[in-house]
């Protein structure tokens, strides 16, 4: 550990603003870079699940209609 106190970590001998700004501006896009495709995948996945349920419901419906006919 190089720094003695939390305040000196924050201040970094006057360079704190630049260092923390750079790290913040890096962390933000990196998090989005990973989070966005995960989110997109989940949305697609849910949509596909809903689609399958709809299809299953439709066939079940059809089967019950056919059953009542006979």
């Amino acid at each position: 550990m190089y720094f003695e106190s939390l305040a000196s970590v924050w201040y970094m001998d006057g360079h704190g603003f630049y260092v923390w700004l750079a790290y913040a501006l890096t962390a933000l896009p990196l998090v989005f870079m990973v989070w966005l495709p995960i989110k997109r995948m989940q949305q697609h996945w849910r949509w596909l699940q809903a689609e399958q349920r709809r299809a299953a419901a439709a066939t079940a419906n059809q089967a019950s209609v056919m059953g009542s006919d006979v």
Partner: peptide
Amino acid sequence: GLLVAPPDFRQGNSYRIIYIH
């Protein structure tokens, strides 16, 4: 890079940006 590594003797702490740049 931010907390443990020593500062650069010419640039001080600003060099810590190297670890992402």
